[in-house]
Simulated assay, not measured.
Amino acid sequence: MPSPEYSLTDTLERIYENQLALEAALMELTLLVESQGHAKIGENVRGALEAIGENAGHIKQGLARLKAHGPD
């Protein structure tokens, strides 16, 4: 069986998808923690989630530019 080729854009796309999945999971945990009365912890995590969201936007734009330039 031939080994699959892993292009840079494919690899980065998977990292991006992992980041989104981790962001969603972390948000679920944040909601649980906040519902148990730990507002300060929730606030701290939301700050980290904001950074993740901002970075996700940059990653998505970078991926779009890489894909527009053709195969890597």
Rank of each mutant, 00 (worst) to 15 (best):
L29T: 09
G70K: 00
L22D: 11
Q19Y: 03
H58Q: 05
I59Y: 07
Q36G: 00
A51N: 11
K67I: 03
I59D: 00
G62V: 01
L8W: 09
V33P: 04
V45I: 15
L31S: 03
K60R: 14
M27G: 10
Y16K: 05
L20Q: 10
N44F: 08
P71D: 02
Q36F: 06
Y16S: 11
L31K: 08
L32P: 01
G70P: 00
M1C: 03
A68V: 09
N44L: 15
D10K: 12
K60M: 09
Q61S: 12
I59F: 13
L26A: 14
Q61V: 08
T11G: 00
Y6F: 14
Q61Y: 07
E28D: 15
H58V: 09
A64H: 02
S35M: 05
K60E: 14
Q61W: 05
I15M: 06
L49G: 03
E5R: 10
L49C: 04
A64F: 00
E5F: 04
E5T: 10
S7A: 00
E34C: 03
N44I: 04
A51K: 15
A21Q: 09
G42L: 09
H58F: 08
N55Y: 01
T30W: 04
E5M: 07
G70W: 00
I59G: 00
A56P: 01
E54N: 05
E50F: 04
E54R: 05
N55Q: 08
A25M: 11
E43I: 04
G37Q: 05
K40P: 00
H38R: 15
L22W: 06
T30S: 07
E5Y: 03
P4Y: 07
L49N: 01
V45T: 15
A64M: 03
G57H: 07
H69T: 02
L31M: 11
L12T: 02
E13A: 14
G42C: 08
I52T: 11
L20T: 03
R65V: 06
E50N: 10
M1Y: 13
L63G: 06
Q19S: 08
H69R: 07
L66S: 00
L29Q: 13
D10Q: 12
I41C: 02
H38L: 15
R14H: 02
N44D: 15
H58G: 01
